[in-house]
Design a protein around this nucleic acid. Structure first.
Lengths: 196, 196
DNA sequence: TTTTCGTAAGTGAATACTAACTAACATAAA
DNA sequence: TTTATGTTAGTTAGTATTCACTTACGAAAA
């Protein structure tokens, strides 16, 4: 199914964990090899460079996210707001299960040094943006959302609010309840957006 | 006035610019010295380590931001929303004048490798949060803001929306008009919050 | 004369990556 | 069934380069 081997996935997950725990500066081929219990050259059997590990890791998450969100099945009784709730719930659940991912995909700045990497992060952000924009458009068209604010601006506010919630959760050391807080913030925004 | 010498400020600004242009990975003592036209050991005359340059740089901006925001003079006719507009306008103006700052203070992740540095970034974020929280509390108390949402959640949404706007501006290569777009987003949020 | 601010020329440690080799195993011709 | 050949995934022991930082010294202002 996946285009990656088991060993490659193991390496990518170890890299994600190390970045999450100690930052990108501490992700070296040496430490990464030690984490997995292999020698340094062994890693080069599976990826041709360190950059390729990072690039693959981002691509891997992008694929996962796309598949996951597109396979969410909405009920016929769901409102447009319910659909948005389902999308973010799925995201927050993934982050809660694998907190290390957040450190990697929310970090435009750590990949600033390499164009291919920062482009890949931008692609992931754009993908999420598309889903939200589509939802907002739909909600305004079917009259479930008010039209106080334009589609683009509303999308910025929604994504911004959710990102901020994730960031605070991360800075708290993952101690707070991300799913609960994310729900509070999203419901807050929907309370202001939904027509009554 | 400042606790920093001219040379120190010159070094901190050069460091900020280099991080902004090429990322933290490219900020080395060698490249930094070349930017200023000095030798490497000369930098050590002014800062005792590379980390101290970064730490000072963050402290320098924190001080600047605190002074700047606290010296904003509100008119008696200003609504609570106007006060919030003035605060963010001041921030966005600073970012527009010196875009490099954004790369440094919006980057929790790039300083992940050092606790003192990430703490300093958190302090800057907390400071901004305080100003917004105070404003939201005041607005709800004096009846200018509605009470659909709690103070903390509303603060998260506002800061999140503004951060997202700045991030998009940064990813656009500073090509969009930050002040204008920030105003649009803030006005959008206020439209939903203000009592009519 | 002392202090300040600079330089040239290093240091040891760490980094991404490579060279050369091998054990284990699969495939298929003899 | 044995033997030859190739592949996969690993090893040890390096390479050149880059890094933050230091030592020892010079010039010139106070």
């Amino acid at each position: 199914m996946s285009e990656f081997t088991d060993r490659q996935i193991e390496i990518m997950e170890a890299a994600t964990n190390r970045i999450s725990k100690y930052g990108i500066q501490n992700l070296t081929i040496k430490t990464l090899a030690e984490d997995i219990g292999l020698s340094e050259p062994a890693l080069y059997r599976h990826f041709k460079s360190k950059n390729e590990i990072l690039l693959s890791l981002l691509e891997y998450f992008k694929m996962e996210m796309k598949n996951r969100i597109q396979s969410i099945s909405f009920k016929p009784t769901d409102t447009t707001a319910d659909e948005l709730r389902a999308i973010f719930n799925s995201q927050l659940q993934t982050f809660t299960d694998k907190p290390a991912i957040v450190s990697v995909i929310f970090a435009e700045s750590i990949f600033h040094f390499d164009e291919s990497l920062s482009n890949k992060v931008a692609e992931i952000m754009d993908l999420m943006q598309e889903y939200v924009l589509e939802n907002v458009k739909k909600g305004q068209e079917n009259g479930q959302y008010n039209k106080l604010i334009g589609v683009a601006t509303l999308t910025t506010i929604i994504i911004g609010g959710m990102r901020m919630t994730v960031l605070k959760w991360k800075l708290s050391g993952h101690k707070s309840n991300l799913i609960k807080e994310g729900k509070t913030v999203l419901d807050g925004m929907l309370k202001m957006i939904e027509k009554k």
